[in-house]
């Protein structure tokens, strides 16, 4: 078996993703190769330690704050119109939330809460592992760069600026909208979603002071004013 295949199968084995036949073939190979066996054992140890990560519970519920915020937003939205039914559910909601908090308190009285604040460590980069990892990567790998991808509020679409193109992709990876900007002088300043389907792109032209703003309805696939 090729090294890349062994590496991939050793990884998939940790996730119970191998068929019985594949598992037997892998076991057979690992019995014959000390190096691959050692690598597989090391991976298994990492996986074992990861599986022991504590399932940390929140120290208290944030649902009362969520409900308060919703209430504030709804109140400010309808300042002139009093809506008793709207506030009634919030009272019900708060009662349920209070019950949640009581449950939490009970739990914490019984359990020793593991609080382990982590230092705000700096992220390190990815390695360019050749072989199996590269093979697994797909065309949309660049979409994963978190700082160039902006999700719509309902998490249905993600917008990205890519080589002078505005690209909008659905959650399943399918292309929803694409538009190429011809000028090489244009640079992206900001992407933001105005609604679940309208995205606003602010571009800066190298020779101009005033930014160019394009607003697109990605469902209707047309520019909007």
């Amino acid at each position: 078996m090729a090294d890349e295949k062994i590496m991939e199968w050793s990884q998939r084995n940790l996730d119970n993703d191998l068929s019985q036949l594949e598992k037997s073939m892998l076991e057979k190979h690992l019995q014959e190769s000390t190096e691959d066996r050692q690598n597989a054992d090391e991976l298994m140890e990492v996986s074992r330690q990861l599986s022991l990560l504590p399932r940390t519970d929140p120290p208290h519920s944030v649902i009362p704050q969520v409900l308060d915020q919703i209430e504030r937003e709804e109140t400010s939205r309808s300042k002139t119109v009093s809506s008793p039914s709207r506030t009634r559910w919030l009272s019900v909601g708060r009662a349920v939330a209070a019950a949640v908090i009581v449950s939490f308190a009970g739990l914490f009285a019984l359990m020793k809460f593991q609080s382990s604040d982590l230092e705000n460590g700096q992220k390190m980069g990815d390695t360019n592992e050749a072989g199996v990892y590269s093979q697994l990567e797909e065309k949309d790998a660049n979409m994963e760069k978190a700082n160039s991808v902006i999700w719509s509020p309902n998490q249905t679409y993600r917008a990205e600026w890519k080589e002078r193109k505005l690209v909008v992709v659905r959650a399943d990876g399918a292309l929803q909208y694409e538009r190429l900007f011809n000028s090489e002088q244009l640079q992206l300043q900001k992407i933001e979603w105005l609604t679940d389907q309208v995205v606003k792109v602010t571009l800066i032209h190298a020779d101009r002071q005033v930014p160019e703003i394009i607003t697109v309805d990605v469902v209707k696939k047309q520019e909007v004013q």
């Binding site: 996730d15 996986s47 990861l50 697994l136 990567e137 949309d140 994963e144 990876g173």
Partner: peptide, 16 residues
């Protein structure tokens, strides 16, 4: 919100 193979790639790279 990523394809299956991309997810595997991230998981495998992270573990590696």
């Amino acid at each position: 919100g990523l394809p299956l193979n991309t997810v595997k790639s991230h998981l495998f790279r992270g573990r590696k």
